[in-house]
């Protein structure tokens, strides 16, 4: 139920991001989609993916904001420094408390939960017939990952060729 509400919210935010005129609002709407995805990972019981998604989303948001609208970024410099400092400290403490509860659930260092990996090690040869267990994971159990990697590489090659060949063709004339 929460997942459906979250998906509707993400679709709405994506439509807003495409349709809105203001660049800053568009970037913030993209960030809202990413945060919704992070919450969806949390609901689907994948906390490590949720943490990764959150971190990457924040990084992308910062880069996008700096890259797209570095000119008209409003910076408040004078006045209200007490309010600003106090509110920053309050938010840092708030997120530290949340991070404490979130990180407490992770397995301790050196004691990984090997439930999935144990299955792969025990049944890898029997299920796939490959004696190299890394290949059996990459190309059989987790082949979706490899498909994504291949797609990323394909897109990267096409992008490089599109950017580079334009100059070569103009000079060839």
């Amino acid at each position: 139920m929460e997942l459906q509400v979250l998906l509707l919210f993400m679709i709405f935010a994506a439509v807003v991001a495409v349709e809105i005129e203001d660049l800053l609002s568009s970037v913030i709407a993209v960030g809202a989609v990413g945060l919704g995805l992070s919450l969806a990972f949390l609901i689907l019981k994948a906390p490590d993916l949720a943490i990764t998604q959150l971190v990457v989303e924040i990084l992308c948001l910062i880069i996008l904001i700096r890259a797209t609208i570095k000119k008209d970024l409003v910076l408040v410099k004078d006045g209200r420094w007490l309010f600003n400092t106090v509110s920053t400290l309050v938010f840092i403490c708030f997120f530290l408390v949340l991070a404490y509860f979130a990180l407490k659930e992770l397995p301790h260092f050196g004691q990984p939960i090997m439930r999935v990996a144990k299955e792969y090690i025990a049944y890898g040869l029997q299920e796939t017939g490959a004696t190299n267990i890394v290949t059996s994971v990459i190309l059989n159990f987790r082949a979706y990952d490899t498909l994504g990697e291949v797609t990323v590489l394909f897109t990267a090659v096409i992008g490089v060729l599109a950017v580079m060949r334009k100059i070569g063709r103009i000079n060839a004339k």
């Binding site: 017939g129 090659v157 060949r165």
Partner: peptide
């Protein structure tokens, strides 16, 4: 042996090899 895994490897090697050489040539 191992069913489709060698075929997947061949496909990936074609893709990766040609892609990297294409990038090198373009550069």
């Amino acid at each position: 042996s191992a069913g489709i895994i060698p075929w997947c490897n061949i496909a990936i090697s074609l893709k990766v090899g040609a892609g990297l050489f294409a990038i090198f040539t373009a550069l």
